[in-house]
Amino acid sequence: MTGTVEIRNVVKRFGKVEAVRDVSFSLPEGETVALVGHNGAGKTTLMKLMLGLIRPTGGSIKVLGDDPAAGQFEARRRLGYLPENVSFNTALTGHETLAFYARLKREPGKSVAPLLERVGLTHAASRRVGTYSKGMRQRLGLAQALLGEPRVLLLDEPTTGLDPALRQSFYEIVEELRGRGATVLLSSHALTEIEERAGRVLIMNRGIKVADGTLDELRRIARLPTRIRLKVTDAGLTNVPNWLGPVEGWRRVNGHMVEIDASPERKIEVLRRATDEGAPVEDLDVVPPTLDELYAHFLLSQETAR
């Protein structure tokens, strides 16, 4: 399968530091992929490699069929990039700034105003960028990344500095582009935020790709326990093992709650017992492992493997 972005055995060294070590993956059309990792895990380096801003020490990169570092600009016209901590020249207005970038992408000048409208900057279009708040600058950054209907969007920490309402509309815009067949690569620290949006997750640690798959796949690989929370009546609390059966790893929380960490194969059994007739259970919640927990798990298993 060939995707819009192909990364094969890519290595990048900065002096003695290996920022990316033998990473391979492929990003298909119409998918949102989350790139997750600590600071310094190699996320930004990977994006810069895909943009051709730096050259790989080894391996090959293809973006929309081109080698990005070879100086072919055709692919870059269909590529949107939002850098971490985006900055603009402060002397120009929002409209002038966006018009400049539009000209570089050979987009007509009339595409600027609708884009500003879309990110909610119409009221500030004729103000200098120097007067913008962090959130407004981030919105302008998003607007420039959306210029020219990009087929590949690389977004480095896109929602830092955005308030919750804007975050929502930001993800709506991204989802719309994805629906039209764009590849979206998104790096973030806010894992809970990504969890609902990304179809696939790439976990990086110290330049190594430690996990790659959909959330479900990763959950299966990680075999993390599912947390089951039961609200139990007073009578039930005194003899939990009687009705729940021999379950290890249960504990009482907040008086009336019983929490069980159920391994994947015991999960159904525990649920059956808890919902059995006569079980003193008033309510229950099932919480699958979150991306946070998965992330911690994969990092830990990679660290111990070293």
């Binding site: 943009l51 100086g71 016209r77 850098p83 900055s87 992408k105 950054g141």
Partner: peptide
Amino acid sequence: ERGTMLLLLSYPVG
């Protein structure tokens, strides 16, 4: 240093 070059060079310009 200001970070504007990073964005500019990600555009189709040599």
